[in-house]
Design a protein around this nucleic acid. Structure first.
Length: 721
DNA sequence: AGTGAAACACTTTTT
DNA sequence: GTGTTTCACT
């Protein structure tokens, strides 16, 4: 039983309590840096080695591939062998596996493929056109969002009520059309994977019973991020007597905007009266001061499940606050400070620069570039999302399934082969008339001869190309197949002709696709599937790394959202201005503010040893100069945790520290953010200010009237606050 | 079919 | 200010 010491020794009391918990539903409230992955991993080892559960009976669910991979790795390390038949994966990945295993019962064809967000967007645009709906009045993005949000709630088009709202009615119409189009093409989008898998279990007694009996132990990571359908899914599989082991942190719920429901934590407790809660509150990451600052901030939120992080580590240095003159000054300060850290022997990869929105990365990039400090920006296009890669995949998808309309549309005329818009439109019309796929419609059109000779021969060329490639590569290995397609389709040549350095990069990517195919190993747990179809699913489900310029030691730049789950010795949390962070779009809504506050909390708790906060008094935003107020979050951090560096007085709008928080000094009574009254426009909030003296102009957002620029000398504004 | 100007919108992101 | 997308022109 010395295995057990290996499992339990590295744990603290709370962690141990969670890991060794009896067979009841468990909720582990795991604060930032409290070792939640460790608890999950050790729990699994405990189940196997002490409770005698086989890997076959365990399912562990995460949100990202990265988290899933890490978990699997650590499990295998701890138990000293492969986790084999254990189901460890993302919600989408596991739902996908379920659907592959039971595609017949799920109402899907055998080789169904997955639509990524871009494919889905294109498809909706096409549908709108076919339905003769103006995509100006019906923004495809909005409809896409609508459909996904409904699916995340578990609702199909036929379930959505229009409430006599004409707009809603149109949305539902498109949703219906979209469902049909997906059905016809044999594709499913991301949300559909979850919804379908849920329906599969819900509607198939025997399948459900099988999985309920099999997975008595379902473990879920980041439970605060689950949406309605994911919750329902877990509920179903866990069944009445399952013992779900849930790990989450309500204070780190930052995905409400995409359907995540923090309430699921509460709901879990209500629906499992016999559950037990363990709180992991000891933090192993940050200094005492950083924790004190973060704790104080998050205390301003309501309805918390309650948790207070502590550490027995050292106090550490105060959190530094820098009031920058503008965004360039902010960047300069950040770079100076990180230089100092590097001079003191710190590693570049220890450093993270965090911001609220992607656009903010630019200033930092420019400066880091100029100073020749290697950096890496997270986010952006990932490997399998690149244009040339998606083109190649579209060819492959068509070969696997001729009815794949999105892929047909994508490559009929890439590279150009004389199938113009006119011809494609004819094919679409034919498909609509026959209720068939584009591929069949194209064949039909060519045979019927109701098409010009030129267009007909161009289409025929395309049809023959696909057929020929499918035939010729049928017996090849996967990577040879991919290579063959890239060459024969003309894609390689096509992208080679692109000008600039782009061509090289694109060709390199295409080569890398071949390598990826060569390295690909099908999932042994689901594969009856031909390697090609399996590879294509993999490409959609795991879009690959962002543009990771190798593993060179780099300063890390990323949004606060993508920083979740990571930790860095040195963290810069930048752009702390009202309107930017918290973001303008969240500011009206109290729940929005709370989510922003949690985001700030997440950002602060990324820091291990050094935390720098900064804001800029003026900033170029969307092209024009704006004047920000220090983020309200700054005022919520106790003054004695903060060390304010070079507080600038007498810039455009001085900020001073008073009474434990930041307050603004008045500038002739009209301060940014204050309420004013105007004779004609009524009441509003001062958003912006330009210039000095009587000629100064202010931008005021009036209730009802909207925002106006006014010259102070003429406007006769009355300050109300 | 490919280029260029104009119009436009602009959190956060995984799968 | 920047990147994207659409439309019009060659």
């Amino acid at each position: 039983m010395d295995d057990v010491t290996a499992i339990l020794d590295p744990l603290n009391d709370a962690q141990r309590e969670a890991v060794t918990a009896p067979a009841v539903p468990m909720l582990v409230l795991a604060g930032a840096g409290s070792g939640k992955t460790r608890v999950l991993v050790h729990r699994i080892a405990w189940l196997m080695q002490v409770e005698g559960v086989t890997p076959f009976g365990i399912m562990a669910v995460t949100f990202t591939n990265k988290a899933a991979g890490e978990m699997r790795g650590r499990i295998e390390q701890l138990i000293g062998g492969p986790a084999g038949s254990m189901w460890v994966g993302t919600f989408h990945g596991l739902a996908h596996r379920l659907l592959r295993l039971h595609c017949r019962e799920a109402g899907l064809r055998e080789g169904f493929q997955i639509l990524d967000a871009e494919d889905q967007h294109r498809m909706i645009k096409r549908l709108l056109r076919a339905m003769e709906m103006d995509d100006g009045r019906w923004p495809p993005r909005q409809i896409q969002w609508f459909i996904n949000a409904r699916k995340d709630e578990g609702l199909r088009a036929r379930h959505v009520a229009d409430n006599d709202d004409p707009v809603q009615r149109q949305f539902i119409r498109v949703y219906h059309a979209y469902e049909e189009a997906c059905e016809r093409a044999g594709v499913v989008d991301f949300a559909e994977l979850l919804l379908r898998a849920h329906e599969l279990l819900r509607d198939n007694e025997s399948i459900l019973r099988h999985y309920q009996q099999r997975f008595r132990h379902v473990l879920v990571d980041e439970f605060q991020d689950t949406n309605a359908i994911q919750y329902a899914w877990i509920r179903l599989i866990a069944g009445k007597d399952g013992c779900p082991f849930i790990v989450g942190d309500d204070d780190q719920s930052i995905y409400g905007w995409r359907g995540a429901k923090v309430e699921n934590l509460q709901r879990f407790q209500n629906e499992h009266p016999e559950h037990r809660v363990v709180r992991l509150e000891q933090n192993y990451r940050s200094t005492g001061t950083i924790l004190r600052a973060a704790n104080a901030l998050i205390t301003h939120n309501n309805d918390r499940l309650g948790k207070n992080l502590w550490t027995d580590g050292e106090e550490g240095e105060p959190v530094t606050l820098y009031a920058a003159y503008n965004e360039r000054d902010e960047a300069q300060y950040v770079v100076e400070s990180l230089r100092q850290y590097l001079r003191d022997g710190g590693a570049r990869s220890d450093i993270a620069i965090l911001y609220r929105s992607n656009a903010q990365s630019r200033v930092f990039e420019e400066l880091l570039m100029a100073e020749a400090i290697p950096y890496r920006v997270y986010g952006g296009l990932r490997f399998f999302e690149r244009q040339e890669i998606k083109d190649a995949l579209a060819y492959l998808r068509l070969m696997a399934n001729r009815d794949d309309d999105p892929s047909f549309e994508r490559v009929v005329n890439v590279p150009t082969r004389g199938v113009g818009q006119r011809t494609v439109e004819q094919v679409r019309a034919q498909a609509r008339a026959d209720g068939s796929s584009l591929w069949k419609a194209a064949g039909e059109l060519v045979n019927s001869g109701r098409i010009s000779a030129r267009a007909g021969s161009a289409l025929t060329r395309f049809i023959d190309l696909i057929n020929r490639m499918a035939e010729d590569s049928a017996d090849l290995d996967l990577h040879e197949q991919v290579d063959h397609v890239i060459q024969v389709s003309g894609l390689y040549e096509h992208y080679g002709k692109e000008k600039g350095e782009k061509a090289d990069a694109r060709l390199e990517n295409l080569d890398e696709l071949v390598s990826a195919a060569q390295a690909y190993e099908p999932d042994p747990l689901e594969d009856e599937l031909p390697p090609l179809a399996s590879f294509l699913s993999h490409a959609a489900l795991e879009a690959g790394e962002g543009q990771s310029d190798a593993w060179e030691e780099c300063v890390q730049l990323m949004t606060l959202h993508s920083a979740k789950g990571l930790e860095f010795p040195l963290v810069f949390l930048t752009g702390l201005e009202d309107g930017l962070f918290p973001h303008q779009r969240s500011i009206q809504d109290p729940d929005g503010i709370q989510e922003e506050r949690r985001l700030c909390y997440v950002g602060m708790t990324r820091a291990m040893r050094h935390l720098y906060l900064s804001y800029a008094e003026s900033r170029r935003l969307h092209g024009s100069e704006t004047y920000g107020v220090p983020s309200r979050f700054l005022a919520e951090i106790p003054a004695d945790c903060l060390h304010e560096v070079r507080p600038r007085v007498q810039v455009s709008r001085p900020a001073t520290l008073t009474g434990g928080g930041l307050a603004q000094a008045p500038v002739d009574g009209i301060t940014l953010g204050s309420r004013v009254h105007h004779a004609a426009f009524g009441e509003g909030i001062v958003l912006n200010r330009e210039g000095d003296g009587p000629q100064a102009r202010v931008q005021v957002n009036f209730e009802g009237v909207g925002s106006k620029w006014l010259v102070l000398a003429y406007a006769k504004l009355e300050s109300l606050s």
